[in-house]
Amino acid sequence: MKSFFFVLILLFLIGCKEEKTFADDIVLTFPKDTQMKVQDFNEDSNEGGENLLYIGKLNQNIEVKYYEAIFPPPPPPPLPTESEKDFSIRIKKEKDSLFQLKNPFFKNEEIPLLFSKNENSVDSLSNKNLQIIVKENDTIPLYKENYDTKIINKYFAFPIFIKNISNKILRIPTESKSTALYIYEDSLDRFYFARNSNYMICGTTGGSYSYIELKPNEILVYAYPYFKSGTKQKAKMKFYKASSKEFEISIDDKILKNQYNKYYE
């Protein structure tokens, strides 16, 4: 009889064990002596740098370096009295100087963008073709450059892994947001979009639309900054119409009260 109950307990424990995911074997590497801090409310209002750190095939070891910008900035114009040769020399010096400063934190390559005259539909990006794995208890640095001081801030963040689980190449629009945090509101039994700020950044439109191609079994890896800790909240991450499993996150109540507006699912 004892052995029978032992087997039942063992089967129960096995059933309760979380199912292994594609993200479990991925190791995100960065200098272990990195000094990080919690991002302050509204601190990202004057900072540059994407939250995207990887696009491509499954890789067991991924270095934590971020794409700096979706669209690279245009070079500055030459000075009125500057020759073409002097202009080239000056631009090269500036690029070399920036490379030394940013190389430990940002990727040298640009995001591989494609363009279309037709707007990409985000409704097709859902849990039917994307799987989102959130490692809310893992800590990695999120690098952001202050536009004024040029200082690289290093924030406590956690990784979000997104995999194309379909057999088709997916178009990932770049005009809008990346990963988004949604907090559960008990009184309404609904989730709402939350940020570590009280302002909103709207997308821009133009004559063509840019996107990233994500092939079958390829992944995206993003980072999301930890908020100042406080009350435990039920949350999930969303990527367009796709959602992660629910998890718990600690957030200062003042941050949620000071949101620009509440946008519900």
Rank of each mutant, 00 (worst) to 15 (best):
E43V: 03
P78A: 00
F106T: 00
Y66I: 07
F115S: 11
E109Q: 13
E50Q: 11
L101P: 00
P78I: 02
G48D: 14
I89S: 01
E43A: 06
K95Y: 09
I55M: 10
S121E: 11
L125T: 01
T29E: 10
C16D: 11
N103L: 09
N61D: 11
E68Y: 13
L98V: 00
L98Y: 01
P75E: 00
N61Y: 11
K92Y: 00
E84G: 08
F30G: 02
E94S: 00
P72F: 04
F105L: 01
S83M: 06
P31T: 05
L114Q: 13
C16T: 13
K57N: 13
E68D: 09
G15W: 07
P112C: 07
T34Q: 07
F30C: 04
F22Y: 03
N103W: 07
V38L: 12
D86W: 00
D86M: 02
I70N: 10
P80K: 03
A69G: 04
L125Y: 02
S121G: 07
A69L: 06
Q100L: 06
E19A: 14
N46S: 13
E47N: 11
C16I: 13
P112Q: 10
L114I: 08
F71C: 06
T21L: 02
T34V: 10
K92T: 02
P74K: 03
E18F: 11
N51I: 06
F115Y: 15
P72G: 05
F30N: 00
E109R: 12
K65T: 05
I111M: 14
N103E: 13
E119Q: 15
P77Y: 01
K85Y: 11
F99T: 04
K57Q: 12
K117V: 05
I55V: 15
S124R: 10
I89E: 03
S124H: 09
E63W: 07
